[in-house]
Amino acid sequence: MDERSDKKLVTAAKRGQKEAYAELVKRYYRDVFAVCLGILGNVDDAEDIAQDAMLTGFLKIRKLHKADRFIWWISQIARNLCIDLLRRKKHVKTILAELPLQSNQKNSQNQDIHKSIRQLPLELRLPLVMYYFDNKSTKKIAEKFQISHSSVCSKIKEARKQLHKLLTGREK
């Protein structure tokens, strides 16, 4: 099963083979979670939406025409669900400020950095989260989401600089 291409797995999943879709979940859950975390900036919401996106994908798999573009397609589903959630929570900034601290933020350093990540603009936060979730491979991010490598690099550099500014409270 591990050797099967995404295309074959998607085709099998379209025929109702749950095992094939389960294999796609194993392959791409991490990426979907990273997209959600990058957009929402909150671990609990990211978990809910990533799981929701994967289940929605299972129910809608027959609508996926280009079977080799599963990761792009499922990421779009996740992205749309995240945007829906953000719309429901109209005053996002206020809500984020009121959110309780995450259980895995054991020390104040982590609290600071997590808070700063949330403050990054979405267009910088998403590539940064993807970068740390994808073994720091900018090329993989560019391939997966079909964007230019230079654009990924420049966004990560900018995110790093802005994060530093937020953490230290000064320019550069």
Partner: peptide, 21 residues
């Protein structure tokens, strides 16, 4: 710090994906 933070998030992913499956 970022690497450690995201490693922490990543540790729980197995449980989450098992729930989906």
């Amino acid at each position: 710090l970022l690497t450690n933070l995201f490693d922490g998030f990543g540790r729980d992913l197995q449980r989450q994906q098992d729930e989906v499956i």
